[in-house]
Nucleic acid binder design. Structure first.
Lengths: 240, 240
DNA sequence: TGATAAAAAGTTGTATTATAGATTATGTTA
DNA sequence: TAACATAATCTATAATACAACTTTTTATCA
């Protein structure tokens, strides 16, 4: 077994403190000097470990002030995505996952949603009727589906949905728009309306069916467009 | 505008080098000393910057060898989301999500798995027969289900599975053991064996059914034990 | 007594220097 | 040419010092 590095020792120690809630979000870590004392390592190693934790967004450092445990917000973590580029296939894989997760969340949502939640959901549908740009639709679409996952009352599921939509927004926004813009406004709004009404009627199965259908339509549309683009590219290739 | 820290300067410089492909994946970065010279900062600052890049998986360090640019794999970046999920986790909620995702991945796996993959899966089953401790079982269980999700050929799905098992290992290991240890060894191994055989037979539906049944049994067992513990606690309460 | 300003203490950021441990390159020898 | 020893290179860790910034305490004055 390979020996753990000193900085990893620090990393694990602090992570454990956070996991076990000994240090809660917003609270301050022991100072670097103190941590070095506790773990019997130099301040250099302590800093290296904390640097990593800060890079993945678990803690934030304030010069002169101390190091604090972050509140769990995805914005903190998204910055690391800049160097990545997601490809077409990634989009399809992601939607396949959504099909599985959304069908679960909408099911739970239909069972657990409150009156207030239903009202909010209705307002989003209302807004959808009056959108101007595809960008607006993306935001409403995101709000709609995240509201559903929120009312699934499964926080873990909701967190994963938040991650998925953040990644979507960050990396695939343009692609997503090409998909949604190609079909008629009315159709995609109707799809959401059907899901909404199934939720209102507390019909878990129906809500799930409409959701799966909604996602499969998006996937199909994308695959078709992708193939067209693929064939066009091929034609251009043969022309040469 | 706030002044950039030295370590951030290093971070940005290297990130730019990688994005502009001046240093391609697999290639080595200039040494810490050289980078410090180029950017006119001390080696400490260089190290801090590189430490961050290493934490988000853009580069890897080899003691004595140098620092290398990683191949751009999404799993490197998705892992940064683990901290978000560490907060507010609940075992049952996680297993509910697993039920949805595992049923998808096992389905895809049965369709796409290679001969070599089947063989590896069989070896894990073989190992399960000879385990001694529950800790070993956790590792094999993890390997088994991650191998399945890997052969689903959906990388996004696989990445989420990796995160889930990471969170499971970090937060719920003790709990998980209490669940698995209460039922007989034979039963839980048989469950995996059934899933394995369905995969071997390329029977997608059967594999999915056995997987769902497997997870629901775990959930049920946990709920029962939880209720028992809950009632015991209540009894103790009333005694007082 | 309360408010304000100054001082002190605490904390992170950067720099320098030194040594240890690991890998890679070099050169020598058989 | 191949094998082995050696040197050079590089990262890991450490100790120390000081700068920059924040928080807390203390002192002063109204």
């Amino acid at each position: 077994m390979r020996k753990k590095s000193k900085s990893q020792k620090v990393y694990d120690y602090i992570e454990e403190l956070v996991i076990s809630s000994e240090i809660k979000p917003g609270e301050r870590l022991p100072s670097e000097a103190k941590l070095g004392e506790i773990l019997n390592v130099s301040r250099v190693s302590v800093r290296a470990g904390i640097e990593k934790l800060s890079a993945i967004g678990l803690v934030s450092k304030k010069k002169g002030g101390g190091t604090y445990v972050n509140k769990p917000k995805n914005e903190n973590y998204l910055s690391v995505f800049t160097p990545t580029l997601l490809h077409n296939t990634d989009y399809l894989e992601m939607m396949e996952v959504r099909r599985a997760l959304d069908s679960l969340s909408v099911q739970l949502c239909a069972k657990n949603i409150s009156e207030a939640g239903v009202k909010k959901l209705g307002e989003i549908i209302e807004h959808m009727e009056h959108i101007q740009s595809d960008l607006d639709f993306f935001d409403l679409d995101k709000k709609f589906h995240l509201l559903i996952s929120k009312h699934s009352k499964n926080r873990f599921l909701h967190n994963i949905h938040i991650i998925i939509w953040d990644v979507l927004q960050k990396t695939l926004r343009s692609k997503y728009n090409t998909v949604t813009s190609s079909d008629s406004h009315k159709e995609r709004i109707d799809e959401h309306k059907r899901i909404y009404e199934a939720i209102v009627g507390k019909d878990e199965d129906l809500a799930r069916i409409y959701t799966v259908r909604h996602l499969e339509r998006i996937i199909d549309t994308f695959v078709c467009e992708y193939n067209e683009a693929y064939h066009e590219a091929k034609e251009q290739e043969t022309k040469k």
